[in-house]
Design a protein around this nucleic acid. Sequence first.
DNA 1: CGGTATTATTAGGTATGTCTAATTATATTA
DNA 2: TAATATAATTAGACATACCTAATAATACCG
Lengths: 219, 219
Amino acid sequence: MKKTYSEENYLKAIYHLSKMESKVSPKAIADALENNPASVIDMLKKLQDKLLITYDKFNGAFLTSSGELAALDIIRKHRLWEVFLVEKLNYGWDEVHDIAEQLEHIHDDQLAKKLDDYLGNPAVDPHGDPIPSSNGKMPVYATTLLSDISVGQSCKVGSVRDTSAPFLKYLKQLGLGLGATIYVIEKQEFDHSMVITINDGEQKTVSHKMTAHILVIPG
Amino acid sequence: MKKTYSEENYLKAIYHLSKMESKVSPKAIADALENNPASVIDMLKKLQDKLLITYDKFNGAFLTSSGELAALDIIRKHRLWEVFLVEKLNYGWDEVHDIAEQLEHIHDDQLAKKLDDYLGNPAVDPHGDPIPSSNGKMPVYATTLLSDISVGQSCKVGSVRDTSAPFLKYLKQLGLGLGATIYVIEKQEFDHSMVITINDGEQKTVSHKMTAHILVIPG
DNA sequence: CGGTATTATTAGGTATGTCTAATTATATTA
DNA sequence: TAATATAATTAGACATACCTAATAATACCG
Ligand SMILES: [Mn+2]
Ligand SMILES: [Mn+2]
Ligand SMILES: [Mn+2]
Ligand SMILES: [Mn+2]
């Protein structure tokens, strides 16, 4: 069953929110899509009619299995296109999200597979996020937040939980790219800010807001 | 001023129709877009309000200079994406039009230029149609119809005037690709069908409907 | 010329996806 | 617990881009 541009965006938002919070509320969806709860309620009804989600006030929204497959398909396309834009068209990783937001909705049976093959079947997108397989499985890599790494431990940047331009620009400025090695020197109890070195460079202080949006592979 | 998906399709249709016929009527636009004249009239008013076209019943629709620039930009993107799909993703030239119809509406300031550079600044799309320049000029190549070539003359396939799958499939079956050399052996006065050889192969008979949709470079 | 077919246009309506404002339900917290 | 803040929901509206049916204008043809 063909989905509209808008339905696809809702499914994707619900998928992402369900990974972050236990309950996916209309308010949370409205915030994610930058629209309002009244619009969300309308759409939740439509998605429920199409058996893509279940929704009730107490449990919030849940993707059905067909809804989850649809969401993963969109995410797959989004991330493949991001790889294309960075690897082939030489965009910066902080420039590609909004374009991928459009490209993810292009409809064609063969496109994702051909793009995937052309790109050499990449495992992750330019932000380190895993690319779902064509049969709808989401590989899991980095799951530990940098903020949870202990003093004296080191780790590598696996992916980021925020794809906004300001965040990515700041990362670039810090030299914090994918795969960068981080060593945790100190943690402030007061505001949870961290003193770290990046690739054995000079010491830098980063806020909790930063460290709570960076996923790492410990060790 | 940002244009909607639909507005862009109308501008493109009006551009193409204006090259084929002297008057672009609501009926002709409706046929091209497979919708109905009432819808077209609505949109013509909107486009006129936005100063993208002029319209009156006696002269039909005309693109203003900003309308023409917009149309050429969409056509440029359409054709660049078609090159990408064929050259990089290994689609057949009969499979790419509908996908490009979606991709042409992707909006990003740098995208067309980056794509163009990445593809090596192609002059023509997979159907031999010239790719407009970034400053809105449409190069002109093949302008002669195969149906206008005389008996005893040869020519090369420059482009096609129909991008429907049945037409392109038939071309492929005949071995009539871009650049193929055609030699005109005979022309029937009755139905204007032609006997030709393709790349010095065996003789084939093709209808006027075919020869009137193939543009060639004589000589 | 007059009648018929084709086009153009208007009027009114539908579906999608959004909104604001009002109302109801649920949490928070003093 | 009662007041208050936040969230969910409903009602009503609006913009976009379609549609059908009716009417008006124009073209075509015998
Ligand atoms: Mn992204
Ligand atoms: Mn999107
Ligand atoms: Mn095309
Ligand atoms: Mn289009």
